[in-house]
Amino acid sequence: MKVLVTVKRVVDYNVKVRAKSDGTGPELGNVKMSINPFCEIAVEEAVRLKEAGVATEVVIVSVGDKSCQEQIRSALALGADRGIHVEAEGSLQPLAIAKLLEAVVDREEPELIIMGKQSIDGDNNQTGQMLAALTGRPQGTFASKLDIADGKAQVIREIDGGLQTVSLALPAIVTTDLRLNEPRYASLPNIMKAKRKPLDTLTASELGVDTVSKVTLVSAEPPATRQAGIKVASVSELVEKLKNEAKVI
């Protein structure tokens, strides 16, 4: 079984991003970039499927400018077999990314696609569901467990009320939640090996996809700041403040 895993290059989750002072967008100069944490979990899951003998090949795909090859290499160092870089400039909306991925899916015909549930920069939570719609495949979103058997994917999904189990006909699309697994660290030899793994580049025009969007960023601002609070010395002072000052109990 061929598994396709999507990987997005994003600002590292430890960085506290701020709006630029001129309000034109987030300040992204000189910040640490990483694989989106949910995509890292997707890579780990695919590699485990390969180690378990369920997957035969793990292909990584990332859409973005040249620099996202760095994240593809990181995914290869975690155990994936080869990479596909879809070269595209600027920040694309999820629908355009899903269309580019659809074109890759048409070429690669994977039986399973594992994606992150959400990119932690745009916080969209859209691309997997959109790709599922475009390809007419079932979707197992927010997965905390994945089992492949008898041509089906059984997915336990994290939902607001608890957990839901669905069964999906393959080929299917699964998006990861944090509890699906704990990604490994790449070893130095594997990082070296990853440098020699194949990495192909495609462009949006080669794939015949129009990436223009009707959703545009008008401005970006910092969130409302909270008034600095106070420290209370005791539980009784806390209760008194909540009753008489804040009046919330």
Partner: peptide, 30 residues
């Protein structure tokens, strides 16, 4: 069509505010 996720304010019929970067930036999108 594109989707706008998780709006926190309506500016006008086609313009909305939504948090990005874990709420550290509030984007206004059209």
């Amino acid at each position: 069509v594109d989707q706008v996720s998780d709006i926190i304010a309506v500016v006008s019929a086609d313009t909305f505010k939504r948090p990005i970067y874990a709420g550290n930036v509030i984007a206004t999108v059209k």
